[in-house]
């Protein structure tokens, strides 16, 4: 229990509390992401757990949430640490489909992963009309090619 916590914690009617979701295997976590009846809470917790246990099979379900206004960051939370090039492919592919802050988030994740294959796309985005996007692309390029 967290410091001073008095109220009961949130849970999902089907998948339970955070601890129960964290104990699920990867396949079940992916199922939550695809379940239209699962709550935002359950999907968020599944994404966070996939950051620890997700592999290539989790990438499509996580990537499908990148355009979701509320879950996009959680999807990136799951994707960023997965050591598989499928994540880089998915993030690069999302660049043409995302806009605004969700696009900024995807660019930031590409920078964290230092995906050299994204250099061309980021070089174009560095001149995007959205200043936040342009700044993010510039920062990501700096991470991929420090000193360039």
């Amino acid at each position: 229990m967290a410091q001073g916590q008095k109220a009961p914690a949130m849970n999902d009617p089907r998948y339970g509390a955070a601890g129960e979701i964290a104990a699920l295997p990867e396949a079940k976590l992916i199922e939550i992401l695809k379940d239209s009846s699962a709550t935002f809470f359950a999907k968020a917790k599944a994404c966070q757990r996939l950051a620890a246990v997700g592999g290539p099979s989790a990438v499509p379900a996580l990537a499908a949430l990148l355009p979701d206004e509320r879950l996009s960051h959680y999807a990136r939370t799951g994707l960023e640490p997965i050591p598989d090039p499928a994540v880089d492919d998915a993030l690069r592919s999302a660049l043409s489909r995302l806009k605004g802050k969700l696009l900024v988030g995807a660019i930031n994740s590409i920078g964290v992963r230092k995906d050299a294959k994204a250099i061309d796309a980021l070089s174009k985005l560095m001149y995007d009309r959205d200043a936040e996007v342009a700044r993010a692309a510039s920062a990501a390029l700096g991470r991929i090619r420090p000193g360039a």
């Binding site: 960051h73 960023e80 936040e132």
Partner: peptide, 17 residues
């Protein structure tokens, strides 16, 4: 230890880095 290496960072919310 791949799992430990995954825990070295966390994705920041959109807009922060």
């Amino acid at each position: 230890d791949e799992q430990a290496n995954r825990m070295r960072s966390r994705a920041m919310r959109d807009g922060w880095r």
